[in-house]
Simulated scan of single mutants.
Amino acid sequence: MGALDKGYKADELIRLAADKSVSARNELVENITDLFLTPGGRLNEHERALMNDILSKLILNVEQHIRRELARRLADSMDLSGELVGMLANDKIEIARPVLEKNKLLQDAQLIEVIRNRTDAHRLAIAIREDVSAEVSDELIEHGSEDVVEALINNSSAEISEASMEYLVAESKSLDRFQEPLLSRQDLPPGLAFRMYWWVSAALRRRIIKEFEVDETLLDDAIEMATKHSIQQAEEEDSVMDKALKLVRKLDDENKLNTTFVLQALRQEKVNLAVAGLSQIAGLSVKIVWRAFRERTGESLAVIAKSIGLSKEEFTSLFLLVMQTRSGGKARATSLLKSILTMYNDIKAANARAAVRHWQRDLGYQDALTDMKEAI
Rank of each mutant, 00 (worst) to 15 (best):
P189M: 01
P189R: 01
P189I: 07
P189K: 00
P190K: 00
P190A: 02
P190T: 01
P190N: 00
G191H: 06
G191Q: 08
G191F: 02
G191C: 01
G191W: 01
G191I: 03
G191N: 06
L192Q: 04
L192S: 08
L192H: 02
A193E: 08
A193V: 11
A193W: 03
A193S: 13
F194N: 15
F194Y: 15
F194T: 00
R195G: 12
R195C: 12
M196Q: 10
M196R: 02
M196K: 04
Y197C: 03
Y197A: 08
Y197V: 05
Y197M: 12
Y197G: 06
Y197E: 06
W198Q: 07
W198S: 05
W198M: 03
W198P: 04
W198A: 00
W198F: 02
W198K: 08
W199G: 02
W199Y: 04
W199S: 07
W199M: 03
V200T: 12
V200Q: 12
V200L: 10
V200W: 10
V200M: 14
V200K: 08
V200F: 06
S201Q: 09
S201R: 10
S201G: 12
A202G: 08
A202K: 15
A202H: 13
A202Q: 10
A202N: 14
A203G: 07
A203W: 06
A203E: 14
A203N: 08
A203H: 12
L204Y: 00
L204E: 05
R205P: 14
R205A: 08
R205W: 10
R205Y: 11
R205I: 14
R206G: 14
R206T: 12
R206M: 14
R206K: 15
R206V: 09
R207F: 08
R207I: 05
R207A: 07
I208P: 12
I208A: 05
I209T: 09
I209S: 09
K210S: 14
K210W: 09
K210I: 12
E211Q: 11
E211W: 07
E211N: 15
E211I: 00
E211D: 15
F212Q: 05
F212N: 06
F212I: 11
E213Q: 13
V214W: 04
D215T: 07
D215P: 02
D215F: 09
D215C: 04
E216I: 15
E216M: 11
E216Q: 13
E216C: 03
E216T: 14
E216D: 03
T217M: 15
T217K: 13
T217E: 07
T217H: 13
T217N: 07
L218Y: 01
L218M: 04
L218H: 02
L218A: 01
L219T: 00
L219E: 00
L219Q: 02
L219S: 02
D220F: 04
D220R: 01
D220N: 10
D221M: 04
D221I: 02
A222N: 07
A222G: 09
A222H: 07
A222Q: 08
I223A: 09
I223Y: 05
I223K: 11
I223W: 04
I223V: 10
E224P: 01
E224K: 13
E224G: 09
E224W: 06
E224T: 13
E224A: 11
M225E: 15
M225R: 14
M225C: 11
M225P: 05
A226Q: 13
A226S: 14
